[in-house]
Nucleic acid binder design. Structure first.
Lengths: 109, 109
DNA sequence: TACACTTAGTTACATAAAGTAAGTTATTAT
DNA sequence: ATAATAACTTACTTTATGTAACTAAGTGTA
């Protein structure tokens, strides 16, 4: 049994961010709207999982999917207001990583 | 092929925080040194995974394990300086969750 | 001393999540 | 018509988590 000593809203936010790849995908989208393959190759995630994550993030109102009826049709993913508001979190992680993680070591991939 | 558009230090920090339970354990320890069972019951993690996480966090210099030779012997886990310096991250998540997550809904995990 | 209880784990086995790679549908370039 | 690209999906394998029982050391009680 879990007795939530911890705030359920906080837990929910954590469980969102603790999903593998989610934070990285959001971070990537922070630099602007992007297409599926763009995100996939810059983040290094498999198509399968990216597709899952994007759907999930869409349902949670963090990411917006737009079909742009250009020449062949472009599908563009971007952050919603909710997603953009996570920037301070990602920046905090970035700052911490600059201060405390040494670059050279182990396996990042 | 993956081309790391993303800073390896940042990725490393993310992969640390994206491990299930890790952020919650650190958050919990932010409120002070605690014992194994205390963390386990407040976070709602299994002993097996907690043990793994704690070892991992120790290796990464985030958590410190201390054996206190009191009456029966107490094993206390606490954050190192590196661990304490993650507070802004957790606070940012907390703030975001207060602003953007509604408490009542679905499945947290 | 024997029996039960607590702490701090570990072990074995079951289920869920991720990775890999090939396949799909639509469109476009040659 | 053939090959290529974008955006996914499907099938199958590997890894991570969950569950629950078990261990070792110490303590409390009768």
């Amino acid at each position: 049994m879990k007795q939530p000593t911890i705030c359920p809203r906080f837990e929910k936010a954590i469980s969102l961010l603790s999903q593998r790849w989610t934070a990285l995908v959001i971070y990537q989208l922070l630099s602007g709207p992007q297409r599926f393959n763009e995100i996939q190759s810059s983040v290094g995630i498999s198509g399968k999982v990216l597709s899952e994550r994007l759907k999930d993030l869409e349902h949670q109102g963090v990411v917006k999917r737009e079909v742009i009826p250009e020449t062949p049709v472009i599908i563009e993913y971007s952050l919603t207001e909710k997603g953009l508001s996570m920037e301070p979190i990602l920046k905090a992680i970035e700052n911490w990583s600059q201060a405390w993680i040494e670059p050279g070591s182990g396996s990042a991939d």
